[in-house]
Simulated assay, not measured.
Amino acid sequence: MGKYMVPPWQVRGKLCAIGLALVTLFVSLASMATRAEAQEQTGSCIDSSLSARAVVSVARYFNEPLREGNGEVVGEQATAWFYTSPRLLVTAAHFANDFPDGAWQDVELRQAAREGQVEIATRVRLRVAVKGRISEGPRRGPGPTGLADDVAIMELQDPFPNATVLDVQSTAPTPDASVMVVGYPDGRMQVARGIVRRVSDAVGRYAGLALVEVQGANRLLLNAGASGAPVLDCAKGAVVAVLNGLLTSPSLPFLPPQYAVVPTPWGSPTNTAVPASALAAIRTCIP
């Protein structure tokens, strides 16, 4: 039986029922050997190689494997990026929620190779400095689900070597703005261009969130493992939002299992993100 990692959102069926898959990755170790091709980019945007130096894949391994179907769950993985210093990382709160409160935790950070250099892969210790609160279970009555607070700041015990820190935009991203996302779905760095879409359900399930449509043929690109990825404004390169979910269409019963996840239609959002302004509120709570 193979050992693999599975995403926390698999056990949050009530959230998945509304079509929002929280995308922290628990990935098959076998699938991690396959490197996806970088998505083709068009148009004018910031140089992704500069922002990529600030983004890492973060993996937490369990002390003992957990049984899951016919295999064993060995850990979980997400995307994180450096915020204000080489010791502070931002990610999605739904990844950080299972970390022990205030305790140092062993994790693995990976960063894709720069030209002429090897990939960085290192074991580090970190702890959750502060995190937003996200709701579990179905929403009752009008109002936000709490997903707009799905961000966390983690503190490294030692600074990450040669880390680049990203700037943050205090205002929410505007509809039709061009953005770029740097993330680690399936543990492999991907750079995706996108467009911010208008939130039509402003007081319902997506209240307080930004909606992004990924450009390119792979509308499911920013799936498992991409949670926590920075959404960057193409003009200035500042972080405008933090990726936290995948939007899908209802599955069709006659489709084979490999096509069970159906992407949203063209012209509609593919992912949800928490506006970066949420970081200002929780940053004041860092001990």
Rank of each mutant, 00 (worst) to 15 (best):
T79F: 02
S170W: 03
V181D: 02
A52G: 10
P287M: 00
L50H: 14
M180K: 11
V214E: 08
R35T: 09
P185L: 06
D233N: 12
V90N: 07
A148K: 11
Y206T: 15
Y206G: 09
W81F: 15
P256T: 01
A276L: 05
L220S: 04
R67K: 11
M32T: 14
L166S: 07
A241S: 06
P159H: 01
L220E: 00
G102T: 08
A112V: 11
S135Q: 15
V203S: 11
G245H: 05
V196T: 13
A202P: 06
L243S: 01
I46F: 03
A33R: 03
G228I: 03
C234K: 07
V58Y: 03
E108C: 14
P275D: 08
F99N: 04
V107P: 07
T171Q: 10
W9Q: 13
T122C: 01
L147C: 11
L66H: 10
G71C: 08
S51H: 15
A226I: 01
S51M: 12
T171P: 02
C45T: 05
P86T: 02
Y206V: 11
G187E: 04
L252Y: 06
R139F: 04
C285V: 01
E136G: 09
L109Q: 07
E155I: 02
A121H: 09
A238P: 08
A278G: 03
G194W: 02
G245W: 09
L166C: 07
D158H: 07
V128W: 03
T79H: 00
A281L: 07
E37S: 13
A78K: 00
V212G: 06
S178Q: 13
Q77S: 06
F26K: 07
Q258S: 02
R87E: 14
L252M: 08
H94S: 04
E64D: 13
T174C: 14
G187W: 05
A33P: 02
L166I: 09
N218E: 14
S277A: 13
V128R: 07
R283L: 00
Q105H: 12
L220R: 01
A17S: 14
L222S: 05
G183H: 04
Y259V: 00
K131D: 01
G13A: 14
V182S: 06
S31Y: 12
G216W: 03
R110Q: 11
A112R: 08
E136N: 11
V240K: 03
P173R: 10
A103Y: 09
A235H: 12
S31L: 08
A17T: 06
P86F: 02
A21W: 12
I153W: 05
S200T: 14
V181N: 05
T79L: 00
K3Y: 15
L15V: 15
T34F: 08
T270R: 08
T264Y: 11
S170K: 10
D150S: 04
A30D: 13
A103N: 13
T284K: 12
T122Q: 11
L252A: 10
V74D: 00
